[in-house]
Design a protein around this nucleic acid. Structure first.
Lengths: 241, 241
DNA sequence: CTTGCCTGTAGACGATTGTATACCTCTTCC
DNA sequence: GGAAGAGGTATACAATCGTCTACAGGCAAG
């Protein structure tokens, strides 16, 4: 623990009433959680100091750190899902409506593109919101049951979005809804690892991106091959290298 | 924070010099980390109290909590890998040496058995060492870079063990060493999620176990189908339901 | 105008923390 | 038999903590 005596106020330079105290507390907590310890173990005074506020101000907005954590999760997860939805609308329009053409080769080709774009999208997001993402993953396995459950739900919701997208946009042959849902959850969870690798090893980003793409395609390929190996072989499709 | 005043000593009833103070500190820290906060945020006095020791005794054995964490990881991960190795030796002997028979149907059948048994083994282990496992996963995404790196290495080592086993025991056709290594890492990481689900939802254990098995088989099936869809279709193999 | 609510501040309280210093056994080794 | 060290204890101190009570400005409704 730090030995140097510290006032309660100084740290932040600007009083800046540009943002509400509540918001400043949330951002301060995120910053501290990312660089030091877990959210639940943060000190009330510590956070207030970082936010440039009086310690007691915390009480005006939150009862405990779980409440603050939930507020952060609500804000960020909404932002994430909305971002994902929006950027997914784009290729759906420019997408040539390949689902009409019953040509499996074209369908698989489009699936590859969608996978590539979706993964790039996620990796961009975590890069852009690095601290929030790192803290989120941390608290997903953290000590607060409340935050754990909330973050699991965030992942599951994103998984459901992905399921709908896959079912709607690229209708892969033979895959039932439950198959797609299961694969989506596997993909979302594995992406948490890929994303962390991506953040921590900037020099290997291209490689990690390709590994992630390969993983997703491998799962779908395996699922199709499991349902109908004969048709897959007969279709002449080839797995990308 | 607790308001009731507390002595430094009482908590543990038995002085019990049966185990070394060092060991008692490690166990106390594990217990506290599992039920309350993260390892790094534990109090030195808190741990000593739980261990029934004088606060200063901590200094005799560790310089900081990272050191204690590393000691715990060393001990437990050694225990885990050894347990895995040992229980893997058993089926290898009783295993009928199916790798000799070039029959792909038999080879795939054996692969299924091995996957099933390996997953049961991991799930048993995490159930048996629940607190250590939960804390391990928590610290893998925690705030201490030292512990994070150490725990990532544990996972990677287990992944290498799995790679060797797969290459040695069941020689799946067409899969190179690098393919198997990549799949192994994916499996090990995904198993951390399956294991947590398994612990947290005892009423769904059978279902979770089957999901895990299905995931692993799906990956291998996909990898084989990616390399050689024609041969796979011609072999007459069927994916288990 | 004043009443109330919301947001933020100020000061003080006891509890708990990390750590420094000193003392007390035991073993072990020469 | 004495020195050295390892493991454990006791006491003390400054720092930080969460929380309590009291007070101040702004702003909207009555």
């Amino acid at each position: 623990m730090k030995k140097h005596s510290a006032e309660d106020r100084p740290s932040a330079k600007a009083p800046s009433p540009l943002v509400s105290g509540r918001q400043r507390l949330m951002e301060a907590a995120l910053q501290l959680a990312a660089t030091t310890r877990s959210l639940a173990s943060l000190g009330l005074r510590e956070v207030a100091r970082q936010a440039g506020l009086n310690p007691n101000t915390f009480y005006r907005h939150f009862n405990d750190f779980d409440e603050l954590g939930l507020a952060v999760i609500d804000q960020l997860s909404g932002q994430l899902r909305e971002g994902l939805r929006e950027r997914r609308r784009r290729p759906a329009e420019a997408g040539l409506k390949l689902s009409d053409t019953a040509n499996p080769v074209d369908a698989w080709s489009k699936a590859q593109d969608v996978v590539r774009e979706s993964i790039a999208l996620v990796l961009d997001f975590v890069t852009e919101h690095r601290t929030a993402y790192v803290v989120g993953i941390r608290e997903m396995h953290g000590s607060s049951p409340v935050l754990r459950k909330a973050l699991r739900k965030v992942l599951d919701d994103i998984g459901e979005d992905m399921t709908e997208d896959v079912l709607g946009a690229l209708q892969l042959p033979l895959l039932q809804r439950e198959d797609v849902a299961e694969i989506s959850q596997l993909v979302i969870r594995q992406m948490t690892f890929f994303s962390l690798d991506y953040l921590e090893h900037p020099e290997q980003r291209e490689q990690i991106r390709r590994q992630a793409e390969r993983f997703v395609l491998l799962l779908f390929w395996g699922a199709i091959a499991a349902k109908a190996p004969q048709e897959l072989a007969a279709s002449g499709l080839r797995f990308p290298d």
